[in-house]
């Protein structure tokens, strides 16, 4: 049955329309969870507000569990779902640069658009910087290409890499995530701050 677009159940234009609707849901949830506030987001890294950890991991858990159950019921063919390819070094270095961007800028791209749309001026500047960063990457692309396209590892999933069954890995992630939530709530009590 799913994914709908790949099995030609919906047309290209319907797909774009649904993208817009899904986007509304995405933006609404991000904003109402407090992701439009950079100080709240940055609180994650000082322990005074771990909303990022909770929302982020709860969402990942729900998606993992939900998709695996849908696959069990044959509602979706997970082989047709996009799995981002693993290019080891570009992922690691790109991730590290993004982490530095997160702690200096206080947003990530998705949250900066949310924050800009409710009037945060710092988010508008962040978006401007982001465009600039993409242009810099584009201009330096010939230099970066070996790194960007190197160390290609295919599109493995974590269970494949560990040689375990999907469900077992998901159970493990659930337990780790619940443990992190517990630590997060403990940290929030230890470093209390008023909400921004």
């Amino acid at each position: 049955m799913g994914p709908l677009i790949i099995n030609d159940i919906i047309s290209q234009n319907t797909n774009f329309f649904l993208a817009f609707i899904i986007g509304i849901g995405f933006g609404f949830v991000l904003e109402s969870s407090g992701f439009s506030s950079s100080r709240k987001l940055a609180g994650m890294f000082y322990g005074y507000d771990t909303v990022v950890l909770k929302v982020f991991f709860t969402a990942a858990l729900v998606a993992m569990v939900g998709l695996l159950f849908m696959s069990l019921f044959n509602w979706i063919d997970l082989d047709m779902v996009y799995i981002n390819p693993t290019y080891l070094w570009s992922t690691i270095i790109g991730g590290a640069i993004m982490g530095a961007g997160f702690i200096t800028g206080g947003f990530c791209p998705g949250t900066s658009f949310c924050a800009a749309s409710i009037g945060k001026i710092d988010a508008i500047f962040f978006i401007g910087g982001m465009f600039l960063g993409i242009v810099i990457f584009a201009e330096a692309y010939p230099l970066l290409e070996p790194l960007y396209k190197g160390s290609f590892k295919g599109t493995p999933t974590l269970p494949q890499a560990l040689g375990l069954k999907d469900g077992v890995v998901v159970l493990g992630i659930i337990i780790v995530a619940l443990g992190m939530f517990w630590v997060g709530e403990w940290a929030e009590k230890k470093f209390p701050r008023e909400e921004y």
């Binding site: 569990v65 044959n74 469900g167 659930i174 337990i175 619940l178």
Partner: peptide, 23 residues
């Protein structure tokens, strides 16, 4: 959250993965 999601995780860990492809 834990009460709901841990049993679901246990079920997923226990049942065999679906390897049939509807496509």
């Amino acid at each position: 959250l834990a009460l709901i999601i841990i049993p679901l995780g246990l079920i997923l860990a226990a049942v065999p993965a679906n390897t049939t492809h509807p496509y």
